[in-house]
């Protein structure tokens, strides 16, 4: 093992010279700063003339700065310990030493570091802004049908539509006006036309036959509720009595009713009948 180690050592000199030189420099520079020598040369110039101070100070600075880094990395602990006490007496000089190279570094890297930080922050801000807007739009677009979810409005719609269907489709030949009044109040738009189409024929024969039509909603449910629009599925029973001969007939009806909130009152604005005859459908679609 020893011979193998010895051999490589002679070979590198050609390439290794710089290293040796570097080591030599450190070695040569060290004594200049070393505790014994350093205090005297530095202290001496400080007291005499300013010119000498400046030149000496700069010279020291230049020598010291390159050394400080290698010292921390390469030199052994005892040497660093030796060096530090020497630095304490000349704190002012050290402060000056530090301040000068700091300014130089700033000036050198300013075009990069100076703009890098605000630019990076700006990019971050733009990205966050975009993300925030995305979240904003997502949170706005979260929508669900409020049927049953908004239980108060759901039962309000349900109750008012039940009432509207029962009142406007129940009919007593002796009191035509109340039915028509109810229909005008509780139906709106297209539904009024549909109502006339469905109920018109009944009204024609009603006075002669002395008809009494009673409509009762058996079950109903709000299938959709969005803002001021609702859809209600209504199951109704209809009992028609001819009071002239007391004949009565009944039927069932399934309606899909659209409702709109008209100033606090839900009104029917469209009706679809399930199981309606072809003629009824034609009449409803004519509106």
């Amino acid at each position: 093992m020893p011979p193998s180690r010895r051999r490589p050592i002679p070979t590198p000199p050609a390439g290794g010279r710089p290293k040796v030189a570097g080591l030599n420099r450190r070695a040569s520079a060290e004594p200049a700063v070393s505790p014994s020598d350093a205090p005297s040369p530095v202290v001496e110039p400080v007291e005499p003339v300013g010119e000498a101070v400046e030149s000496a100070g700069e010279a020291v600075v230049e020598d010291v700065t390159p050394e400080v880094e290698p010292v921390a990395e390469d030199l052994k602990a005892p040497e660093a310990l030796d060096w530090t006490p020497s630095a304490t007496p000349k704190k002012k000089a050290a402060a000056a030493v530090k301040a000068e190279p700091a300014d130089q570094v700033d000036a050198a890297e300013a075009p990069f570091r100076g703009w890098m930080i605000p630019a990076a922050l700006l990019v971050v801000a733009v990205l966050l802004g975009a993300l925030g807007t995305f979240f904003l739009m997502k949170s706005r677009s979260v929508s669900y049908d409020a049927a049953l979810v908004d239980s108060a409005t759901t039962s309000e719609v349900n109750g008012q539509i039940r009432e509207a269907v029962e009142k406007s489709f129940s009919y007593n030949f002796a009191d035509v006006e109340s039915t028509e009044k109810a229909a005008k109040e509780l139906l709106t738009g297209k539904a009024l036309c549909q109502y006339n189409a469905v109920f018109g024929p009944v009204k024609e024969v009603a006075p002669q036959q002395k008809l009494v039509v009673t409509v009762r909603v058996v079950s109903s449910a709000v299938s959709s509720l969005k803002d001021d629009h609702a859809t209600v599925l209504v199951f109704a029973d209809q009992v028609t009595t001819r009071t002239t001969d007391n004949q009565s007939g009944g039927g069932t009806a399934m309606l899909r009713v659209s409702a709109v909130d008209d100033g606090g009152r839900w009104k029917i604005d469209n009706m679809e009948m399930f199981g309606a005859t072809a003629e009824q459908n034609r009449q409803l679609q004519g509106c």
Binding site: I117, L122, A125, V126, L128, G129, L131, G132, F135
Partner: peptide, 24 residues
């Protein structure tokens, strides 16, 4: 000043994004 303005902007937009993230 640019750094400060950019930092303030970044902080504000962070708040904006965080608020609506939570809202969503």
């Amino acid at each position: 000043i640019f750094t400060v303005v950019a930092a303030v902007l970044a902080v504000l937009t962070f708040g904006y994004a965080a608020y609506f993230g939570v809202a969503w």
